[in-house]
Design a protein around this nucleic acid. Structure first.
Lengths: 341, 341
DNA sequence: GTGTTTTATGGTAGCGCTGTCATTATTCTT
DNA sequence: AAGAATAATGACAGCGCTACCATAAAACAC
């Protein structure tokens, strides 16, 4: 009767007790061997491992997490998967944790703090060992949980602000500013901006503001500005630049919020016979490989997405505890001069 | 004494018992309300929900999974994150499950069945509700676990083979074959292939074989073939085409295993002043947006990656049980005529 | 009005593992 | 050689939840 429930559940799936019985050891010893924890005699280890292999034992992590009040899960909340930036970050995270026991659970927030909050709470139900999210801007409730939780927190991409524990990324404001200065130095004077309408893309916004402030410091300002109602795709960039040039034929350089859109801009120029760089400069952001493989390599800023993900995950692995003090890691950025501006 | 352990663990984190006490109900009733399961009087539900909100109760999924021998986790194993194809699939999966209780745990296999096996086993420790992986080719051990596990299985991308439960994808062999037929119809006769050396990319291989067999059926064969030692990037495609043309200047069309490489090929042609389509046809695979945004839209095959992910996840959500019989869903593909071949 | 089903709730016993505290054998000090 | 430290193992309770069975009240059948 007592076994009935078990019979219907696990139906032969071996447990620690089964392994212990076969190896002639206590459960706790088997547990220690499996977790590679505490002092174990070589002979014991060998015997247990043989029993594990023979039974094909797979530890039950739900039971383990419950007993130890900690899991091996790492919550990763990303704004989007359409934008290659975030798969790159995820790849970096994955590279760092691939040889560890950590397993990433991922959520996509669509750049919406409320969705982020909802997903975060649902993921906290697993008592994750760490939480990685993008940006420094979260809802008050999310922020409270991040600060009080029994897990480490890394906030990626952005470092202009006050992190919970660890921030890894770059200053997007500064990147925008440097973009402006670079283009002014190149001799451009009539600046256009071809953006998108992703309201919650705080980082694109910060770059935009940095750009404007560089122009201002140089005695200039944007002479034209448009935003694509769709997302920030290549097609959107292409169509938007066409419109922008109809409305403002006098601009001599256009800044796009990302490389995808900038490449759309290039394609429009090729199509319309506009001489890139001389007649119209084009500048992107991200430093995608494909932009650098073009006949005219795109002028842009290299954001180190893979490095950001990898660094953050490595930092989180360093300790089991929450860090005593906040850390900000600036991975920086590189201006890629390219041939389009 | 008995409380000591608890004190050090959860330190105030409210449990079901706390909610039950506050609401004046039994734990099981609270559990039912939280899970939205079984008949509950409206008044009870309201009272419980108020208590949940007041305490900020977050259910402990580890305990829940242990008790019910089932989790809300969905294991997703992808070959790579560098290739945009898989983030697209993941996006589709995410779209399908975003309003459900499922949470994706992802692993990256690097196209290696042994890594896939290792990650699969480590993820099975969570008793996932479903497993999604790419391709139909797995190690015998992995296959055994997939067949015997208490979860549903979907194998994505490929349908040329024998699935465990559900396969969602397209026939890559057929796609390769159609590519060959299409190009022959277009008048091309001297075929070159510019591939990569990802040994485990079974699908690229299947397309290659389909292509060869179409050529054979048309009384033709590849006159030139090279493989880039690196991955399948745009840069690789650009450099490879240059080399291929040096060795075989007579070819009149080149097929690439993906759009990224094909775009590299286009960039080489633009750079070298080769008239695309007339002098040299170029054909890719995937139908990426960026290829269609180019001045000469890339001739390619649209693989429906997002749809594959979404369909698979939806199918998995349909039932809690393993399906009685195997299902193969062909999402098909579209030839995009483009302007490059 | 009696029997039967349905609705709403609760008691209890685990799920499979690990933290805590003991216990015994072994090695090291001086 | 006696005491102290270390290495190796085990007993046992309990983590927070849900499956299972039971019960009581309400609704329904005839």
């Amino acid at each position: 009767m007592a076994r009935k429930r078990n019979a219907n559940r696990t139906a032969g799936t071996p447990t620690l007790a089964d392994v212990a019985r076969l190896a002639g050891m206590s459960e706790i010893t088997v547990s220690r061997v499996v977790r590679n924890q505490g002092p174990i005699a070589d002979a014991t280890r060998t015997r247990v491992q043989a029993a594990v292999a023979q039974l094909g034992y797979i530890p039950n992590r739900a039971a383990g997490s419950l007993a130890s009040a900690a899991s091996t899960l790492m919550t990763v909340l990303l704004p989007s998967l359409s934008n290659i930036v975030f798969p790159d970050v995820l790849r970096g995270i994955h590279t760092a944790i691939t040889e560890t026991a950590f397993q990433p659970v991922i959520g996509v927030t669509d750049y919406d703090p409320l969705i982020e909050e909802r997903i975060l709470l649902s993921f906290l139900a697993w008592q994750p060992a760490a939480v990685i999210l993008a940006g420094l801007h979260h809802t008050p409730i999310a922020r409270k949980h991040l600060e009080q939780g029994r897990f480490r927190v890394a906030e990626l991409m952005d470092i202009d602000g006050d992190p919970v524990d660890i921030a890894v990324g770059m200053s997007h404001r500064q990147a925008g500013y440097e973009t402006g200065r670079h283009l002014i130095k190149r001799g451009y004077r009539k600046f256009g901006y071809a953006g998108h309408m992703l309201v919650h893309d705080d980082r694109a916004k910060a770059r935009y503001e940095g750009l404007c402030s560089a122009l201002q410091d140089g005695g200039l300002s944007l002479v034209a500005e448009m935003r694509s109602p769709g997302g920030g795709s290549t097609i959107a960039g292409r169509e938007l630049l066409e419109k922008l040039l109809v409305a403002h034929p006098d601009i001599d350089v256009v800044i796009f919020p990302n490389d995808d859109m900038a490449m759309g801009g290039i394609f429009h120029c090729i199509h319309a016979g506009i001489v890139i760089k001389e007649r119209l400069g084009i500048f992107g952001f991200n430093g995608l490989d494909i932009g650098q493989a073009m006949p005219l390599p795109l002028s842009t800023i290299l954001s180190k997405r893979f490095l950001i993900g990898k660094t953050a995950a490595e930092k989180l692995l360093e300790s089991r505890e929450r860090p005593a003090e906040k850390t900000i890691i600036n991975t920086g950025f590189d201006i890629i001069e390219g041939a389009t501006a």
